[in-house]
Nucleic acid binder design. Structure first.
Lengths: 223, 223
DNA sequence: GGGTGTCTCAGGGTTGTCCCCGAGACCGCG
DNA sequence: CGCGGTCTCGGGGACAACCCTGAGACACCC
């Protein structure tokens, strides 16, 4: 599996301490031949885009949450500048929206920061050769979200755009904690009609009550 | 300012990568004499309590969010075991509740993970000699919270601390969307008792239903 | 014209939420 | 010992949430 030359990695995270940790763990190579080499790092969006364009790394390790745009922003700008680097997201967050946004932007994998140095090196090697790498907790989630779209990333979730306009109206108010009666008053329809819409929304989103639905909606930023 | 012997530091964080980073930055000592030496580390609550008791470090660098109890829990248990180590919280979070909880438990400082290696070493040195160290963004907050309480700290809303312990238990689950039946199962009490507690909470918080209450609770970061 | 989809509304049902009332058990305080 | 606070639990009721079935009106499209 050794291609002689080590994999050249660029590291983006706003915490210098964390960058230092990744560098220490990866460069050490776990006592064996260093298959991974950190050739540069950045702590901000602008710095990262410039560094990637300049150094042309094989793999970019990308933090999701950064001041001034986030990892997805870096990915889009680097792609727009014509980079061919492969991107692997590395984040503390396991929130669905974070995973979705960065994968949609084009990352080839997403691992959480709980990962060990050895596993991280292995993940880097795997995305380098084309694998998609996900932390175990996220794998199921990602498969669900992209199961019926093998090709490019869709603009919105399949579940969201199968809601009708009126259903979205009801959903918006519902997620804000409105009672059926209040929703009816707001939309100038009867309570019974509200019930019908709510019922459809719950069925389509595969949630069972308004609390789950609220979480579902906020995860997708519909509120 | 050099006491000849380096300050002995114990490091607690659930991310091995991050521990590695702190270790690399601190041990290097920025090219000068190593004033700080990492003598041990832990990734879990139990491991940390045991390690602190055994190694007797001068300073413990403590992550706030840990599986199985958190930094405040470690601090309390280590104190109960009679340690004389000084604790410095080191966290990604700048949320008020996190700061409050760990300071209340007895930490002498709180810095965020955006800190540089050099500044961290300096912070360690300062808490070692008795200073209270806070990241700039948190300094104002901490002063506010403790301004009128030179001693201990009960900085909660008047409405929150008039809730009894059991009522808070119920509130926590209720705000997460649990049904009464589920809360009853979780707390090993009857649904009727849950109703009683909910009723009290709604009255004391002057809210009229669980949705308003959820917002009330999240506004005060009780979830 | 017929099929499909959306929006509207209703009846009737189960379950959940919230309120009122009362009540026994425990514990700490004066 | 009595008193107050907390925790526990019950009955009974009003209303909200949610489900199922059915159905009329309108628009679009083949």
């Amino acid at each position: 599996m050794n291609d002689e030359a080590p994999i050249r990695v660029y590291l983006v995270d706003d915490h210098a301490l964390f960058r230092s940790g990744v560098r220490a763990e990866l460069d050490r190579g776990d006592g064996r031949t260093p298959v991974v080499e950190v050739i540069g790092e950045a702590g901000s969006v602008d710095e990262a885009v410039a560094g990637i364009g300049h150094l042309v790394p094989d793999v970019v390790l990308l933090d999701v949450h950064l001041p001034g745009g986030g990892g997805a922003e870096i990915l889009r700008r680097a792609r727009a500048a014509g980079t061919e680097s492969v991107f692997l997201a590395l984040s503390v967050s396991d929130a669905g929206e974070d995973v979705i946004s960065v994968i949609r932007a084009g990352a080839r994998g997403y691992v959480t920061k709980t990962i060990s140095g050895r596993d991280l090196a292995d993940a880097v090697r795997r995305v380098r050769v084309g694998d998609a790498v996900f932390s175990p907790r996220l794998a199921g989630f990602v498969l669900d979200a992209f199961s019926d779209r093998p090709g490019a990333a869709p603009p919105v979730d399949p579940e969201v755009d199968q809601l009708t306009k009126r259903e979205r109206d009801v959903l918006r108010l519902l997620a804000r904690g409105y009672a059926y009666k209040e929703i009816a008053g707001e939309l100038f329809i009867s309570v019974k009609t509200v019930e019908t819409h709510v019922s459809s929304v719950l069925r389509k989103t595969q949630t069972s009550n308004r609390h789950e639905l609220s979480r579902w909606a906020t995860d997708r930023r519909l509120v």
